[in-house]
């Protein structure tokens, strides 16, 4: 089995230092766990290969680097290289980190290569007769187990197993090869967005009406109005009463199913 892991030049969310995005490191781990005998290589399209050299220390032995000028769409170059190598599985992170973070590249690749795409995978295993068993995250630990016949593009979800530790010695031994490629596909249409420093915005408070006044929105935000209000305190209640109160409260916030409804 030949597995390509797409690598992007990420930036650390806090420090802004150039790093390998965590979800791509997790994708490497998924690839490494899939089959010991498979050929795994990293693929990066960008101006510099040094940006992804970190991936060598996290389980990859070899990275192919396709030179693409900064700001240019990497998809055509990636499509050309992937069409040449024809991997059975292409792994990517669900979103890049530090760029536009739109998560469109895997979709564009899948379309151009006419491969199916399975998003948000947290576990992968080889099934019988060449199929792949993929577990997709549905959030909160729920999964969808999909049996799919390759070749396939898979994006990795952050709930996948944590990345392997970085090993300096391995990074030293791994190699990055620059490959020359003639792009085949046309670049995707881009949006000309205006940029400015990020401004944190208040999240819309659940239950607050859109047309309410500022005072009403404040009350909804601080939870002063509802019966569940802020900090109800019961001092030395009868245990039975306490149990009833707790259950009512848990039902109100919706984590425990109502008694009359059958469990779903």
């Amino acid at each position: 089995m030949r597995i390509a892991v797409l690598l992007s030049a990420g930036l650390h969310p806090v420090s802004g230092a150039p790093v390998l995005p965590r979800v791509e490191a997790q994708a490497i781990r998924l690839a490494a766990g899939l089959a010991a005998s498979s050929e795994i290589f990293g693929l990066h399209a960008g101006p510099e290969a040094a940006a992804v050299a970190e991936a060598l220390g996290q389980g990859l032995d070899r990275i192919e680097h396709v030179a693409v000028a900064a700001g240019e769409d990497p998809v055509p170059a990636l499509v050309a290289r992937l069409a040449e190598r024809a991997p059975d599985l292409i792994l990517a992170g669900r979103r890049s980190q530090g760029g536009d973070e739109s998560g469109l590249v895997p979709y564009a690749l899948a379309r151009a290569l006419a491969m199916p795409l399975m998003p948000d995978v947290v576990a992968a295993a080889a099934a019988e007769d060449g199929a792949l068993r993929l577990d997709q995250s549905l959030g909160r630990g729920a999964l969808r187990r999909v049996l799919v016949r390759g070749p396939v593009v898979v994006t990795c979800h952050p709930d996948a197993p944590a990345p392997l530790a970085y090993a300096y010695g391995r990074a030293r031994r791994g190699r990055v090869e620059t490959v020359a490629i003639a792009p085949v596909a046309t670049p995707a249409p881009a949006l000309a967005a205006e940029e400015r420093p990020y401004r944190r915005r208040p999240r819309i408070v659940k239950g607050a009406p859109a047309g309410g006044s500022a005072a009403e929105r404040l009350k909804a935000a601080t939870g002063e109005s509802g019966p569940a209000g802020s900090g109800r305190l019961l001092i030395q209640p009868d245990p039975e009463d306490a149990a009833r109160e707790i259950l009512t409260y848990l039902r109100q916030i919706g984590v425990v199913a109502a008694p009359a409804e059958p469990k779903t």
Binding site: Q97, G98, G99, D100, L191, A193
Partner: peptide, 13 residues
């Protein structure tokens, strides 16, 4: 408006 680059910038359109 959307955040980008690790919420360092926002893009508007």
């Amino acid at each position: 408006v959307r955040p980008a680059r690790g919420r360092r910038v926002e893009q508007s359109l």
